[in-house]
Amino acid sequence: MKTIIYTCPYVPAEWIAAHGLRPSRIMPGAAGSTSPVGRTEGVCPYIRGFVNEVIRNTQASGVVVTTVCDQMRRAFDIIMRRCELPAFLMNVPSTWQSVAAHKLYLDELRRLGEFLVRLGGKSPSSRALAKVMLEYDTARTSVLTTRGYLTSSQYSELIAEFNRDGKSGITTTINEKKPFTGGIPLAIIGGPLLREDFGIFDVVENSGGCIVLDATETGERGMCAHFDLRRLRDEPLIELSNAYFGSIPDAFRRPNNQLYNWLKRELACREVRGIIFWRYIWCDIWHAELHRLKQWANLPVLDVDVSGDEQALTVRTIQRIHAFLEVLQ
C-alpha cells in the first residue's frame, strides 16, 4: 500500500486511509549537520529534521505539508526543489472563528483528496469514510484510555506509534495493568517533539516527576476530538473537519485562546504542579507564548529551548529539569 507522510496534526489520517493509502505521521529525527537545508541559523530545528526526513525517505509515495507556520510553508519550497516526491501544500487557516475558515479547510480536504487520487488513491464514498473514521476513533480511544496505566514515555510513544502506523499499530491493552502512580505531576507544553526528544519523559521520571499531560503537538494536544457518531453517519467529511480543524488547539491559531481554554481544563483536571515549556530555537510561534503562559498559568514554568542537535537532552537541560523538580518537591 502506498504511504503518504506528513507531520501536521491537522492532516486527518482517516481521509488518507479512506482513499486506500497508508497515512503515516512521521516523527523526524534531528537533522544535525547533514540537513539539505543549507542554513541552520534562523531555521527551526524541527523543520530541518522534517525536510531531511522527507528528502531521504525512500518508502513514501507522497508528502503533505501544511501552512501552520511560515517556516513550514517555506520548507515546502525546499522540498519541491530538492526531491522528486509528489508534495501537497495544504492551507490550514490561522483563523478559526468564521464559517469561511472552516469552509476553506473543508475545501482543502477535498483538494487533498484529488491529490491522493492522482497518486493512485480512490475517492471514498461517505459510507467508506465513516467506516474508516470509526475504526480510527476506536483505536484512538484505546490509546487514550491507556493514560495513567503506562509510564509517561510509554504513553507518548504509543501516541507516536498510533500517529505513525494508524489503527493497525495498536495492540496494547490495559487489562492487566495497574494504574501508574508517583512523581510530581508535570505538563510538557510546546510544538512537536523530535525523535531524540523522547528521552525527556524518562529524565523527568528519574528526577522524581511524572509528565501527566503531554501537550506537545506530538502528544495528546495534537489528537483530534472524539467523533460524534450521528454526525459521522450523516456528514462524515464535515465531522472529520470539525474534529480536526474545529478542535485541535494550537499556538498558531488567531486568536489562540482555544489553546489556553484547553490547557486550563487539562492542567486542572490532572492536578499539574509545574510546566516544562518545550520550544525550538527560531520558533516564533511558541516562543511568543512563553511569557504569556508564565503569567497566565499560576504554575512554575521551566523554559527549555532546544537547538535540535543530535544531542537533544544536554547535560544542562537534564540538570535544569532536575533542579526544577527539586524546587517543586
Partner: peptide
C-alpha cells in the same frame, strides 16, 4: 494572518494577549 510571517503573527498575538 495565515500566509504571513511568524514574527508578526506571534507578536500581534502577544499584543492581543
Amino acid at each position: 494572518v495565515g500566509a504571513t510571517c511568524d514574527d508578526f503573527s506571534a507578536i500581534a498575538q502577544r499584543l492581543n494577549g
